[in-house]
């Protein structure tokens, strides 16, 4: 199983995603340049964190027009897994691969922290190695992470089991300080209707080894591995 990590000019978590896949899990991985139109036969596409094109206008607003994104969208339409992390989640929303939008954090400040997120649906290709209700400890680092959608969309996402991760405290319940950005309904990650595009604000690729604070992010990559190679 081969991972392709898209490098936009302002990506800065492409290196971390590559490290997670290639060094920690020992899987084949390649960087995919944003000007390229060739996915090089990868099975999973990672849209990594960063500031794709500077993002002075709106996070991900320009990235969706890059040549590689046409191919990523085609890959997604064909059912190929796409994992959008942080800026990658923003880009996936801008590109219409996922519903909703990521707005400026409620308190208007960039937030860098370790948060807890609860697995809301373990029956997806990204969470099969988790149990519903599991609490994962994962870093966040973003300025625009407030997931926002209209009520109807939110209800639909909830009803279809497409809210995959929710911000909670260490005990697994939302409280006054557990939501780092004011996301609606404490949503940290959602999945596409077909179940093959996951977007989330926290950074599982930065939580692959206890040495750097947590290895909980491995569960997401290992789930993918189990499902795709099955």
């Amino acid at each position: 199983m081969k991972f392709g990590i898209v490098t936009f000019p302002g990506s800065n978590c492409d290196y971390d995603s590559y490290h997670a896949v290639a060094d920690v899990l020992g899987l084949p991985a390649v960087y995919l340049w944003h000007k390229s139109t060739d996915l090089e036969g990868v099975d999973v596409v990672v849209l990594p964190g960063g500031f794709s094109y500077g993002d002075y206008l709106r996070a991900g607003a320009i990235a969706r027009f890059s040549p590689i994104m046409k191919e990523v969208a085609a890959h997604a339409r064909a059912g190929g897994p796409v994992l959008g992390i942080c800026n990658g989640f923003q880009i996936a929303c801008e590109a219409g691969l996922l519903p909703g939008a990521l707005l400026r954090n409620e308190k208007l400040q960039f937030v860098s922290d370790r948060v807890y997120m609860r697995v809301e649906n373990a029956d997806t290709m990204f969470t099969s190695r988790c149990e519903t209700g599991d609490v994962l400890r994962i870093p966040v680092a973003h300025g625009d992470g407030r997931f926002t959608a209209d009520e109807e969309t939110l209800d639909r996402l909830e009803g279809e089991g497409r809210v995959i991760f929710r911000y909670v405290n260490a005990d697994g319940v939302p409280d006054a300080t557990s939501n780092p950005n004011g996301a609606m309904r404490d949503i940290a990650g959602i999945i596409s209707a077909e179940g093959n595009v996951l977007g989330l604000m926290p950074h599982p690729e930065r939580a692959m080894e206890e040495l750097v604070g947590s290895a909980d992010g491995r569960r997401i990559f290992e789930s993918l591995l189990a499902r795709v190679s099955a």
């Binding site: 978590c13 971390d16 960039f110 860098s112 930065r206 750097v212």
Partner: peptide
């Protein structure tokens, strides 16, 4: 202050 600084990017920060 430091909650506004990304201290974990590059995934090598052991003591933040």
């Amino acid at each position: 202050a430091y909650r506004q600084y990304d201290s974990t990017v590059r995934t090598s920060t052991v003591l933040r």
